[in-house]
Design a protein around this nucleic acid. Structure first.
Lengths: 286, 286
DNA sequence: CGTATAATG
DNA sequence: CATTCTACG
């Protein structure tokens, strides 16, 4: 059996809905879908997710709308951030928020769900939206680094649990950091820009080198340039593929081993581009 | 000879341009056009007015774009108010601002232009945008009444000059007051709403009764219900003709005498509705 | 450049 | 309910 886990920054789920993200849903029907930048109140989210569930039913993926489990975390600052996790898998537990942070600016950025995979194992899926940061805004960079620092201890705990025969984990989301020069079109020009500063890139190094997480897509693709998952809306960045890889799935080693293949959905986003990010879908054998 | 003077609240000249106000311009080519709620900086206004001038040339109304005289008054509060006056007639003088008021909230609401009519007389055309007001906002109502109070002395001066054989005057604009029950669909329900409160309506009474201005359109149309010049964007107000008459041309008696006919352009605004107000065009024999 | 909110009308 | 502005990304 295999499952597909998708992660996508939707850049406003209402705007995405207007741009027919529904067609993408009907085509992909991911078993787990982690969504970032929902940027909507619950009253706007509910009918949109209802539509998504209807599509799962219509395509025969589930029997009834309630079989699509939904959980979302709304940012306390209206119109900002916001994450959601939708899954057709049985959900054993959910946890909202990054432990250790509770300020408004840190809300709407972290959901954990323990799901049961077809082979009977429990997998912790985490939907993450890291602060974007701005190089010339000290407060924003401080918030980003504090978030990344706080993440560290949670990732350690998850790693420890996985290493000792417990739940495996997969971290899905928009981390707002391009890891290495192959993860960004114009590395040299961007070393001083938020998202590619050495101090930020070092966090991903530690996740991989110290905590043994695997950058699943990179492992599958090898050391090629790209693929990117985000293109600025300014100028012709998308058309010229002037992109960044900001969206990842980092998995504990045992789960990472089961990865079969991936899609970075630039093609589908070409047809009806419903976000400035492309979705990253990875299929796992479970 | 006759000239047509048009007044229209464009509700954002950029939005109006997107909705093809240009087609209306090409069809109407008013000799004088008073515009309210331009709501744009000069850099945005210029290319749009360039396009208008090109249309006057293309239709053979003028020889070269510069023959369309333009003057505009931008509100000091960005994106608010803003009035403009365009004319193919020779302009002898322009005066910006309502004398006696200079606070930011009172800017972008008053332009006077002395134009030479084909018969050789000088006519003062004033483009006016009165504060909208809000019944439950004391400050906004105070600003509206202060503006109306200040208008009074300027209107007196103009009246005196016209009465003593000097320049005639015509006041064109959005006065944000419906005068009498025939100027509003639902009079009873609106006596407590800004725009139809007795205290506001009394100002128009004094202009007509004490200062001898003529409500030119009403004089031509007689005591019929309507026509209205503004419909709320909420609900089906426009389709159900639940409107208000807020846009007027008030003229000194001698000039008012020359009025030949009028159009309240609800029909044209039906085709491609480019504002929540309809244009009021009046033809004068001069 | 595009998605949001907030103020205004 | 549409048009702006500002904040954010």
């Amino acid at each position: 059996m295999s499952i597909t886990i998708a992660t996508s920054n939707v850049n406003g789920v209402r705007a995405a809905a207007r741009k027919d993200v529904g067609a993408w849903v009907s085509a992909k029907l991911p078993d787990v879908w982690c969504m970032q930048e929902v940027r909507a109140p619950q009253s706007a989210i509910d009918p949109i997710f209802d539509d998504f569930a209807d599509r799962y039913v219509k395509q025969g993926k589930i029997e009834k709308p309630e079989d699509l489990f939904r959980v979302n975390d709304i940012c306390e600052i209206k119109g900002r951030a916001g994450v959601a996790l939708l899954t057709t898998l049985p959900v054993l537990d959910t946890r909202i928020g990054l432990p250790g942070l509770s300020e408004p600016v840190d809300t709407g950025r972290w959901i954990e769900a323990d799901v049961k995979t077809p082979d009977g194992h429990v997998l912790t899926v985490i939907c993450i939206y890291v602060h974007s940061g701005m190089a010339d805004d000290a407060l924003k960079m401080k918030q980003k680094f504090r978030f990344l620092d706080t993440m560290r201890s949670r990732l350690e705990d998850l790693r420890d649990e996985a290493a000792h025969g417990g739940k495996q984990a997969v971290l899905c989301g928009d981390f707002n950091i391009a890891h290495t020069p192959i993860d960004i079109k114009n590395a040299k020009a961007n070393v001083t820009h938020a998202g590619f500063m050495p101090s930020e890139r070092a966090y991903i190094d530690t996740w991989l080198d110290d905590l043994d997480y695997v950058d699943v897509m990179r492992n599958l693709a090898g050391d090629i340039q790209g693929p990117y998952t985000w293109w600025s809306q300014r100028g012709r960045a998308f058309d010229n593929n002037v992109g960044w890889r900001l969206d990842y799935q980092f998995a504990t080693p045992e789960f990472a081993e089961t990865a079969q293949g991936f899609t970075v959905d630039k093609a589908s986003s070409y047809d009806t581009r419903w976000s400035d990010h492309a979705a990253l879908e990875i299929t796992y054998k479970v």
